[in-house]
Design a protein around this nucleic acid. Structure first.
Lengths: 342, 342
DNA sequence: CTGAAAGCGCTTACAG
DNA sequence: CTGAAAGCGCTTACAG
C-alpha cells in the first residue's frame, strides 16, 4: 500500500508538503503542488484515514442508532441523516438495535471506541448508562423519536399524547363509541405516551378505554387485534400506535370479516407510502419525519461545531390526514369542532 | 481521555500487559489480569479503536452502498447485512448513492480511505473505476442486485429476464393481450434485463411490446403510466418493474378510472409488505431478498477470511405470487401450463 | 508470564 | 514556502 512517504520521495519533497497539498494548505508553492498531485495520481496513492484520525484525535463519523430500520419511519429518518452527513463530509455508522437494550449498549460501546463525533439515537433503553458516558466523553447525542433520561442530550420528538387524543376525538366525531387502542410497547416512550393520550382522551369523553399491546410489530398487532376482537366484539373504532401494526391489524380485521370504514373505524399513527392505497385508504396521524430528522442533524452539528452547550428539545406535532378508514367523512361542522379542540 | 498507559500505571503493569488483557490473551496471570480489569473500570477506560486499527493495519468495518435506502428491497437487504455484520463483530458504514454515479464514486473513495474490510455494493454505475481500484487494493466487493463490470467481484443477483417473462406469460394466460411495461432505468442492469425479458416474452407470444420508463420511482411511474394510458387506451395488462413504481402506477390508474384486476391486469416486481393490502392485492414477482442479502454477506466474509480467491456469482430466481390484481384467478389448466413453461 | 521498544501513517508546531 | 521531528494510542515480535 503506497503511503505519503512514497509520494514524497517520488515527488522529491517532504511528507509534510504532501500532507499539506492533500489537505488544501494554501501555502504550498505551485511547482511543488503540481509534482505532488502528479505523483499521487501516478502511484495511485490513497490516503489512510485511520492515521489521520489518530493523529488529529478526531473522526468525521457519526453513529445513527435506530431500533428498527425496516420501519419506514426510521428508514426515512436514516435517509435524511445520511444525506446531510454526506454533504458535511461525514460518514454514518448504522446501528440497528431491534429494541434490545443489550444491543444498544454494545453499539454505544462500539461507537465510543470508534471515537465517533456524535450520535443520533432512537433509544431502545432511555436509561442506558452508556448514554451519559458518551456525553461525559464529549460525544454529543441527539435523542430522536424518543427522549433519553440524561438531560444533557438534545432531543427531537413528537407530541404523542396529543396525537392519540386527536385520533380518539376524530373517531368519536364520526360516531364511534367503542374505541380501542392497539398499543406499542410500554417500555418505550412513544408507546407509553400514545397509550396515555388515548386513555386521557377516552376519560375526557367518558368512554371506557380498552387496549391491547402489539409491540410495534406486524405480528404483534395481528395477534393483539384478534384477541381484542374476540374479547370485545362490539369494538367499532381503533387507534393503532404505528404503521407496522396497521398491517397486522388490517389482516386480523379482514379475517374476522369486519369491514374497515364501515363496521369499524381506524386511525393509525404514521403515514407510510402505502397508507393511501390500501383498502380502504387509512386515516393517519402524520409527523413530519423528514423535517424532524433534518432538525436532529442540525442540532448534532451545532454541538459538534461547539456552537451550543445548552441542551435543546424540539417537539413536533401530529397532523390528522383524513381518508376513508373511519367511514362517514366529517363535514364542515366537524371541521369547526376539530379546530376548537386543537 | 484516559489511555492504556494510564491504566497500566494505575494497575502497576506495562501497557503491553493491559493490551493483552483487553484482547483476551490467555497468557496473562490472574493477579495482573484482575488488577488491570479493576483499573479499567475505575478509570473508565475506553479503548481507542483508531489506534488499534492503525497498528493492526486493519479494520472491522464493511461498507454497504445502496442506491436507494428507502426502497424496501434495499432496506431489507441492509437490515440483514447489518445484523450479520454485528454478529461477526463488524460495523457498517451506510452509503446511499441515489443512483448517482458521482456519489457512488465519492463513497467508494471514502471507503478506500477508511480502509474498510469489504464492500457490498448495489451499483449505480457498474463501470466505476473505483471498483477495480478497491479490488486491486485487496478490498473484496460483492455486487448486490446488479452486477459490476469487473469480473473479480462476487455477485448476488436475480434472474430478471426470467421474471419479466413469467409476468408476461401470466398476464397472457389470464386473457390479457395488450400488455405494456412500466420500466425502470435502462442504465441500470435490473432495468435493462427486466425490459429485455418483457420484450422477449412479447415477441415469443407474437404480441406487440410497448413500454414507458418510470425511473424506478413513484413519481416517474405515475407520469409514465399517465402517458401510457393516454397513448394506448387499449392497454389491458401491465408489468411494473419495481415496487416503488407500483405506487405511482396505481395512482395513475385510479385517476384514469381504470379498475385494476378488471379493466387492467397488473403484475409487479417485488413484494413489499403492503402489496397484499392494497386494493386489489397485487400479483407480484418475489425474489428472496433476505436470503440473497445473507448470501452476499457470506460471500464477503469468505473473501475477508481469505477462504476463496475465485469470484462467484449466485443467481436467484423469481417466484410469482398470484393475488387479485390480474382478475380471473387461474385454474388447474393454467397451473399445468405454467409449470411446463418454467 | 511480562516488559521495553518499535512502528502503524499520518499531521503539525517549530524552526529556518 | 518547506522540512525534520515528534507524537497520536495502540499492538506485538523479541528478549528474558
Amino acid at each position: 500500500m503506497v503511503k505519503i512517504k512514497d509520494v514524497a520521495q517520488h515527488a522529491g519533497v517532504s511528507s509534510a508538503t504532501v500532507s499539506r497539498v492533500l489537505n488544501g494548505d494554501e501555502r504550498v508553492a505551485s511547482p511543488a503542488r503540481e509534482r505532488v498531485l502528479a505523483s499521487v495520481r501516478e502511484l495511485g496513492y490513497r490516503p489512510n484515514r485511520l492515521a489521520r484520525n489518530l493523529r488529529r484525535q478526531q473522526t468525521e463519523t457519526i453513529g445513527v442508532v435506530v431500533s428498527e430500520i425496516e420501519n419506514p419511519h426510521f428508514t426515512q429518518a436514516v435517509r435524511v441523516i445520511e444525506d446531510a452527513a454526506f454533504r458535511q463530509g461525514y460518514r454514518v455508522i448504522l446501528c440497528n438495535t431491534d429494541e434490545t437494550p443489550a444491543k444498544q449498549r454494545a453499539y454505544l460501546e462500539m461507537l465510543a471506541a470508534e471515537r465517533v463525533r456524535g450520535v443520533i439515537l432512537a433509544p431502545a433503553d432511555a436509561a442506558d448508562p452508556m448514554i451519559s458516558q458518551l456525553l461525559a466523553l464529549g460525544v454529543p447525542i441527539v435523542a430522536f423519536d424518543r427522549g433519553v433520561d440524561d438531560p444533557m442530550a438534545d432531543a427531537v420528538i413528537a407530541d404523542n399524547h396529543y396525537g392519540s387524543r386527536r385520533a380518539v376525538r376524530h373517531l368519536r366525531d364520526v360516531g364511534r363509541r367503542h374505541i380501542a387502542f392497539i398499543g406499542g410497547r410500554p417500555e418505550i416512550q412513544t408507546g407509553r405516551e400514545r397509550l396515555a393520550g388515548y386513555v386521557a382522551a377516552m376519560e375526557e369523553l367518558q368512554l371506557e378505554p380498552r387496549w391491547v399491546e402489539g409491540a410495534f410489530r406486524v405480528e404483534g398487532a395481528y395477534a393483539a387485534t384478534r384477541r381484542l376482537l374476540a374479547d370485545d366484539p362490539e369494538v367499532d373504532g381503533l387507534v393503532i400506535a404505528n404503521n407496522l401494526m396497521t398491517i397486522g391489524a388490517l389482516k386480523a380485521l379482514r379475517q374476522s370479516g369486519r369491514r374497515v370504514g364501515d363496521d369499524i373505524g381506524l386511525v393509525a399513527f404514521d403515514d407510510p407510502v402505502w397508507a393511501e392505497f390500501v383498502d380502504p385508504p387509512i386515516t393517519v396521524l402524520v409527523q413530519p419525519v423528514r423535517r424532524m430528522a433534518a432538525q436532529a442533524v442540525d442540532l448534532l452539528f451545532e454541538r459538534i461545531a461547539g456552537m451550543r452547550t445548552q441542551p435543546r428539545t424540539v417537539i413536533f406535532t401530529f397532523e390528522l390526514r383524513v381518508r376513508a378508514s373511519c367511514g362517514k367523512l366529517p363535514g364542515p361542522a366537524y371541521e369547526a369542532a376539530s379546530v376548537a379542540f386543537e
